[in-house]
Design a protein around this nucleic acid. Structure first.
Lengths: 197, 197, 197, 197
DNA sequence: CATGAATGAGCTTTCATTCAT
DNA sequence: CATGAATGAAAGCTCATTCAT
């Protein structure tokens, strides 16, 4: 993959929706060219093939999510606050990049085929999250769960499906949807479903 | 789509793994034929094309999940118990049908099949779950959350991603994985992350 | 080809239009089955294959044309009268069987592939016509042309294209069209285009 | 259909015989590729499918016939002379392009392409011919027939079937056949079959 | 005698990719 | 550096045909 000029990258986002809707396998290179306005041959000048285009788009997304989530988690504050901020950050990035986000989820189940994807997810989400859960126990703002790894996965799953549903369902009310959903998710994850006496 | 004989349906499951691994777009019809033992021409006698084969498999899966989850929720017991059973049921069915399940998630963000899929998911999971949350408030075993719809979605998302991760990661230790994960998920969802005094 | 029951033959005519429009190669056996109301497998019970169905329909048509034209030529009268009757007869049969007729012409150019067709045409039209031209010279009602074979062919061609145009263009005014066309054709063929002083 | 380069068009004529012999439906695309020396994928780069290839060849033929016939009719001379020249011209072009010509006739009765074909034929043959017949009346070299339209059609039919028969039957003696047939056809059409006293 | 179900064989078409310009 | 033109290599799909009932 050659160094992708910013102008080209910008055009490529125009094809993200297409790829998200049809999946990379069903999105024909000609369609990607049409949707992005970049000639086929030019795509091949910069990328090795279709897969690399997807990789570029997803990589971009993951980097930006990881960056934002990481930043949210690193801000000074109690673990519980930082968890909320992280949830907000992930939800925000997802709703800001609905297409790439859907493309990402579309390939979640095929993570086997995309080891890099699995690795990237691991370091972008799970590890920071797990770390945060541990820190929450230390500072006393979070409860000690038995299996922090699975808990981190659950938190990720909750936000991901909620975010995905948002990107699919209500593109126009993204802002309010995000806020409400973040609130509901945080409430559920923090307080649980069992009544507190 | 012609009426699919049971014998044929049974054979088709033999191709579910293939479809889940490669995605329907990358699974060649010849491979599906080989994996299932059904001649290509016979596949086309019963189905309009590759997509319809996937639709059939997914429809079948959703029905079976909905059935099991519904049964779990309908058993006599407190809402909190029935919620646990429902979580267990969904997890069990997912791990029993890992391939179809991964294919299903692969389609979650796709626009193509979204309408039907969304509807099917809605009635198979969200509605019963929401109903259950409400009943839990009545019988006092569950807390009243502000937005039961979003809570139901979150619960679904938690289990789904956890289940999906299980199907991808550890096909051989499915049983113990399921148990542990169900426990972790239930613990998280019921008790929440904030410490109880 | 088994002995074709009248009832089946009658149904088959329902597919003649289809065959005429698309040609036998493009008319799928399933379409022929649908158009005629005869199940595919039943067609194969009576015929060896698609080609034989076409052969049956064309054979039927040619027999009936040959019969009518032959009858017209055999009636007592001068050669010039019998020629007119023959022209009328061919035109009539063509307009009565427009579909089969178009199918026939559609395969005229591939007569090489259908030797029987060429032979049948030869004996149904050319030979009687040539004979008639000769008899006209004898009874003094027709002029002696240099090459009676080519003249016979020309007469056949004139009627055939005129008839074909009729079947294609104006199915509803067949009757009047036939009459006018027969008149015009006879006038042209008998009187020629050069002025008689 | 993309703009077809002359070089490609030239190669395509190499497949005309094949198409004429088997009909477009029976001519496999691979055979067309072999016969023309143009790779299959290249054919599909320029044409939408097999049918479009045929359409291109027929369109080309009709244009060339129309051009030659038009030129023959436009030469200075009496109407009767120009009619002879036109007959000669059509016969010549048909025998020069026997393959495309047979393909053309094979399509005469087909509904599929009829509208365009009918229109093309109308302007290429019928109209000029009808005009010629009228001019013949004016300059006194042709007789006034009652229905010039039908007469023009008849003339066209006579030449067409005669030409077609020639292309099918005797490809090797084309030259002499053409001469004899033109003579016979002109003789018949001009003098008629009824004896002149 | 008639037919629904099933399939082998092969076709058309697609599409990612290359390369001369 | 960017791209229109061209193509090799599959792949999806069709369809005539068969046969058990």
């Amino acid at each position: 993959m050659r160094n992708v000029p910013a102008k080209l990258a910008a055009k490529l986002y125009g094809a993200a929706d297409l790829i998200a809707d049809k999946g990379i396998a069903d999105a024909k290179i000609e369609e990607i060219a049409d949707a992005s306005g970049v000639p086929i041959a030019t795509l091949y000048y910069y990328f090795r093939g279709k897969e690399e285009i997807l990789a570029f788009l997803l990589g971009d997304l993951l980097e930006s999510i990881a960056g934002e989530v990481g930043a949210a988690m690193s801000k000074p504050g109690t673990a519980i606050d930082r968890l909320k901020w992280a949830v907000e950050a992930q939800m925000r990035v997802m709703l800001e990049n609905p297409a790439a986000c859907r493309a990402l989820v579309g390939d979640l189940g095929r993570a086997t085929r995309l080891p890099e994807l699995a690795t990237a997810l691991e370091s972008a989400f799970h590890q920071p999250l797990e770390q945060l859960l541990r820190e929450g126990v230390e500072d006393g703002t979070l409860r000690a769960v038995q299996d922090p790894g699975k808990a981190a996965l659950s938190v990720f799953g909750t936000i991901t499906i909620a975010g995905l549903t948002g990107t699919v369902a209500q593109p126009e009310h993204a802002a309010s949807y995000a806020q409400e959903t973040v609130q509901a998710v945080c409430d559920l994850l923090l307080e649980g479903l069992r009544p507190r006496e």
